[in-house]
Simulated assay, not measured.
Amino acid sequence: MTINRKRYYPLVIGWCLVAFVLAAYAQQGTTPVTYQLVQNINYRPDVADDDYIRERCVLDIYYPEQAKDFPTVVWFHGGGLTGGEKFIPEELQEKGIAVVAVNYRFSPKVKNPAYIDDAAAAIAWVFQHIGEYGGDPGKIFATGHSAGGYLAAMVGLDKSWLQRYGVDADQLAGIIDFSGHAITHMTIRAERGIKDTQPIVDEYAPLYHVRSDAPPLVLVSGDRELEMLGRYEESAYFYRMMKVAGHQQVYLYELDGFDHGAMAAPGFHILLHHVNELTKK
């Protein structure tokens, strides 16, 4: 199901969530499921070499203890690549999936591409270790909001980042990008002295790496009249160019009435829907 310029209303989202929860409950039956949270795991192999890496390059993993072969959502927080903190979204808790919340380094303390490399290292860690917690390495999704969505899209589209860690980006079950830049990120432009109203598309833009053989791509944007700068239009062009390149599984949603920050809450319902659909046997 491909959706172009889709207006997604809260009532529809609510019914989708009810259906998803009922289906998950039916699958679980009466067996109780408990969830475990393990915090502040260092994910970089060079963690001993740098105090800032030890501080920032950590992740939390939240997972269902009794389950096996569950999907995993790797969640990158927003904050413009200059701030923010990892968290397990409430909307993704107790949904039969694992959530890996990732911290990464910030500009200006580091410069591009350090934070992109952090995102790749974190995703690679999940591929290498999720089986130890019961998860299926074939069901890993790169996701995030704003700067986090940008990182997920960059690492998922430009295969060179994960190749550094021995992982093929096409092993991702999907990329779910909440209102992330499709052009080169504004903080990367600021590091070069370029204002945030000057769009650039270079090798640090997800748009630069559109390809037909990428993992399924889900783009979720807030209301075009309420979003930050031209974020909806970036997402719409990203969607169109992926289609032009021949990609068969790209989806675009616009959340009416929600601005850049508020769109994440209803966006989680879309995320759960696609995780469920893309991991069906």
Rank of each mutant, 00 (worst) to 15 (best):
D196E: 13
L229R: 14
A190H: 12
I200C: 05
P199N: 08
A236Q: 09
G230V: 12
E234G: 05
V210M: 06
R211I: 07
G174Y: 00
G222Q: 00
I176V: 14
A173D: 02
P206G: 02
G180Y: 03
I175L: 10
L226M: 14
A190M: 11
K195Y: 10
Y232F: 15
P215V: 04
E225S: 12
H181D: 12
R211L: 06
I194D: 00
V201A: 06
R192L: 09
A182V: 09
R211N: 15
D223I: 07
E227L: 10
D196I: 11
T187P: 04
A173R: 00
A205T: 00
G166T: 06
P215W: 03
D213E: 14
S235A: 15
D177M: 14
P215E: 08
D168S: 11
F178M: 13
I176W: 02
V201T: 11
L219P: 04
D168M: 11
T187Q: 15
P216E: 10
R224V: 07
I194C: 03
G174M: 05
A214T: 07
A214C: 15
L207R: 15
L229M: 15
T184P: 02
G174S: 08
I188R: 07
I200D: 08
L226D: 03
L217P: 00
P215H: 07
P216M: 05
G222S: 05
E225G: 10
A190K: 11
M186Y: 11
E234M: 11
S235N: 10
D168I: 06
L172K: 01
L226H: 04
S212N: 15
G166R: 12
A214R: 02
E233F: 06
I175N: 01
T187W: 07
L219Y: 06
A173Q: 00
R224P: 07
P199M: 09
I176M: 07
R231Q: 14
R211H: 12
H181F: 14
D170K: 14
H209I: 05
Y204T: 01
Q198G: 11
L219V: 10
M228N: 07
R224K: 13
T197H: 13
A205F: 01
S179M: 08
Y165C: 05
T197V: 12
G166W: 06
P215I: 04
R192N: 09
G174V: 05
G174K: 01
H185F: 10
A173M: 06
D223P: 06
G193W: 04
P199D: 09
G180V: 03
L219K: 03
L226R: 04
V218W: 02
P216S: 11
R224Y: 10
H209G: 12
L172Q: 03
S179F: 10
Y208T: 02
L219H: 06
S235M: 08
I183G: 01
A214K: 01
V218N: 00
E233D: 13
D177Q: 11
Q171K: 14
E203K: 14
D223N: 11
S179Q: 10
A169F: 00
D196H: 10
K195D: 14
S179P: 07
T187E: 13
E203H: 13
A190Y: 07
S221T: 15
H181W: 12
R192K: 12
